[in-house]
């Protein structure tokens, strides 16, 4: 079968024998037997380290969880600086976890947690920070300061935690370039290898924001005239 890899903007085609293997196994085979200069990041081979996110025929996948077919076009993630071949720089995306204050602030005495309460953010805490959701996000594509899907999901993962003592501080952290900037288009949902739906988490964060007295800034100026948030030129 043939595998097409977009390397620094140019298509390179490799021929490999089709076996029942993951894309990561195929890339490793290409690197170790055909072209040692092919660059990609990899780690655990079992979809938990988040190193090998890339795009196949335009859709984000983990190379270690996808079985390629002949003619597939492999590309690096979008919306993040390209380092080389299939390697991208995810530092900027990771920095949004800090902006979103995605960490626990615990009370002196922890409340007990029921299995039902634990399940509330079970899926959200499966996140592996692979960056697939930033690659798929059309808002992040045009607003590089948008806090973005995994950081917002991570914010919700702590906001929804029954042990969290600073819900207000966390909600406050995601008002600017955060929950209201998302268009709820849902592009982040099907690309998540862990079955997380950042869109739904963002929706939950909006509700929580409303409860705490925050408003969608698009409507905040209602008294002073309608502003539908359209960009003004």
């Amino acid at each position: 079968m043939t595998i097409n890899i977009i390397r620094n903007g140019k298509k390179a085609t490799f021929k490999v024998v089709q076996k029942d293997e993951t894309l990561l196994q195929v890339l490793t085979e290409i690197k170790t037997t055909q072209d040692a200069s092919l660059s990609f990041a990899s780690g655990c081979r079992s979809s938990v380290c988040g190193s090998c996110a890339m795009r196949v025929n335009g859709k984000e996948v983990l190379a270690c969880a996808y079985k390629p077919e002949s003619g597939d076009i492999i590309e690096p993630l979008k919306n993040v600086p390209l380092v080389r071949d299939l390697v991208v720089d995810v530092e900027k995306a990771l920095s949004f976890n800090k902006v979103a204050k995605a960490w626990a602030v615990s009370p002196e005495a922890l409340p007990s947690v029921s299995p039902e309460q634990a399940e509330v953010n079970e899926v959200q805490s499966d996140c592996i920070l692979c960056g697939a959701c930033y690659s798929a996000c059309p808002v992040y594509a045009v607003n590089p300061e948008f806090i973005g899907p995994f950081a917002l999901t991570r914010n919700w993962r702590y906001v929804s935690d029954v042990r969290e003592a600073d819900v207000a501080g966390k909600i406050d952290a995601v008002q600017t370039n955060g929950v209201w900037d998302c268009t709820l288009c849902g592009e982040c949902v099907p690309v998540c290898p862990q079955g997380i739906a950042p869109k739904s988490d963002i929706d939950m964060l909006r509700n929580k924001s409303n409860v705490l007295g925050y408003m969608d800034p698009k409507y905040a100026n209602f008294g002073g005239g309608l502003d539908f948030g359209a960009p003004s030129f």
Binding site: W103, A104, S112, V113, S114, P115, E122, R163
Partner: peptide
């Protein structure tokens, strides 16, 4: 637990 690890919980909330 204190720094937020989402442990699985038993029926007794332990």
């Amino acid at each position: 637990d204190k720094i937020g690890l989402p442990f699985s919980r038993s029926a007794e909330s332990k």
